[in-house]
Nucleic acid binder design. Structure first.
Lengths: 338, 338
DNA sequence: CTGAAAGCGCTTACAG
DNA sequence: CTGAAAGCGCTTACAG
């Protein structure tokens, strides 16, 4: 095998094929007609030299990176796994590379550190809630970098957002607890501060209570953080303080795991004594014991829609400012249904 | 706010600071001493102009991309989520960006398509089993691109591999089924063809049987594919064909979900009638019913170790050719323990 | 410690 | 349809 010290460049290919580098570039990109026979010679040379165009040179010359950037607060859990799957597939489908970066939940560690993803290395950015500070959003918007937000709305700038029907999903499942199972003291576990999903779910929760003539009791609202451990601690705390409750709307499925753990450890029967429901319908929800009643959120689709809108922006087309994907209640057994 | 049509370049900064672009480059990279006062002026200019160095230009000039490429067969499931988490954190820690690409399990769709990740846009590649064809590995190795394999060994080239103790982990858990629970007809569900993890686990399974004087019965070995659905179908098939068995080593935890589903649907009591065990210890394992006895694999650490070795290669340092991370049995209830 | 200049490897008007 | 040449925005010897 021929192992050249330096990888072949476009000039090597041009020389070998007996054409100019402009012609090589044209057959590479299909930007202009090239006489078939000439194109053939170029292709042969490319193969013979094992030529791969250097991305940096293309980017520098064309001013297009063909890369999408993804900012996430963290990677873990079934939630981000689904979202990432949707994003990756859609990006690939649209011909873009994907650069990812996690910021770590509260970005206080590096107050004004330059983002590793931005106008200098991507054609556009996808950002999930809590991964960008407001001033960064404003800056990116002001310099015209295509930007799409997921699960976060931002007022003041016209930035496309993809999110899901949190409020109605939450309202439905809480109504179900009340109507089908006669629950009246329903705990709500908030997600992380700043998480819009959580705020909307809380509104749905409150609305459902009020619709059914129940008062919102602040003592029943606690922090679950969309996390197993936090949710577990929250329930343990309610139990320790003897707060009476007959159901828990966990905020999300991840938190529901912690709720189930805490209840089980305390010898509280689910769903006989306390109903437990979640939100998201992660792939494991059916396998919990009892199988989790929850609200299905089309997470993967959020990812693919976000890419779709971002690509539109990059191409200079109009993008939808708000994409609201529907959610749907999934009844299993943890609510009390059989 | 000042919104320039074109983002500032190094030349703009140099002009504004009254120095040469070389000097700007130096304060940017800290490659050479610069008189503090001059450096200060440059910093001011950078801030004032909101200057961000274009990545492509740096890469082209320096011939370093500062980017790691990750090739995965797919993104989904708790397994890849953990691995990705380890990789992302380690890459960021080492100052590299991360470009990811999923190839889709059997790469037959695009026989000789150029990989979107390679010497043209990364300083090195991380590849999980089944994401690269052998000839691609050979090619990448031959051109000297730093490359680290995960859960896959490759003979012929000196390519660092990170993997886990599959065989002993499997042998231990199968031995446990025999010794602690008197199981004698233990099903093994293979992973995908070509998955080395699966081959080693199968050897561990066979070894444990033989050590205990049991014969390997080919009728008890079936394909689970490390997937829920495939595993479920495999068990359903065994059941339908009236093959007698008293335990299932599912291959991995994902498959164990399918096993549990099939058994439950058939009214077979786990673990009373049939013990079920998995491999990996994904975060949901403790929450299954019954809680899953399995083998803990340090997946996140596989990711971070892989980055560590890759960075060594990139820096021209010696890397360890084989990193074998230990696994550990985690006893819960699905085996029959209480 | 600093600057002038070459060079990284492409794309893209501009001519022809 | 094709080529010569400018230019993308940096880094890095080489002088001084």
């Amino acid at each position: 095998m021929n192992i050249p010290n330096r990888p072949a460049t476009i000039a090597d290919v041009a020389r070998q094929a007996g054409v100019s580098i402009a012609t090589v570039s044209r057959v590479l990109n299909g930007t202009t007609r090239v006489i078939p026979e000439t194109a053939e010679r170029v292709q042969d040379a490319i193969r013979a030299l094992n030529y791969v165009p250097r991305t940096a040179a293309r980017v520098l010359a064309s001013r297009r990176t063909n890369t999408l950037g993804l900012l996430l607060p963290e990677i873990s859990g079934a939630f981000f796994s689904s979202m990432l799957r949707g994003i990756e597939a859609a990006a690939r489908g649209a011909g873009f590379d994907l650069l990812i970066h996690t910021t770590g939940e509260p970005r206080h560690a590096l107050p004004h550190a330059r983002l590793p993803l931005g106008e200098h290395n991507t054609d556009g950015l996808l950002a999930f809630t809590a991964s960008l500070e407001n001033e960064e959003i404003t800056r990116l918007y002001s310099i015209g970098l295509p930007l799409v937000l997921m699960h976060q709305t931002f007022t003041g700038c016209e930035i496309p957002t993809i999110t899901i029907e949190n409020k109605s999903g939450a309202a439905h499942i809480v109504a179900h607890l009340i109507e089908a199972h006669g629950r009246r003291r329903i705990v709500f576990l908030r997600g992380p501060e700043s998480h819009e999903d959580s705020a909307w779910r809380e509104r749905g929760y409150c609305e459902a209570l009020e619709t059914h003539g129940l008062q919102v009791d602040p003592a029943l609202i606690s922090l679950g953080g969309f996390q197993r451990e936090t949710a577990q601690a929250a329930i343990q705390d309610l139990l320790a303080r003897d707060v009476a409750f007959d159901a828990v709307f966990s905020g999300d499925d991840e938190a529901a795991l912690g709720v189930l753990t805490a209840l089980q450890a305390a010898g509280v029967a689910v769903p006989q004594e306390v109903s437990v429901v979640g939100f998201d319908d992660i792939p494991f929800a059916p396998f919990l014991s009892p199988p989790l009643t929850t609200v299905r959120a089309p997470i993967e689709q959020v990812g693919s829609e976000a890419v779709k809108q971002l690509v539109r922006l990059i191409r200079g087309e109009r993008a939808d400012l708000l994409t609201l994907l529907p959610t749907e209640m999934v009844i299993r057994n943890s609510c009390g249904c059989t």
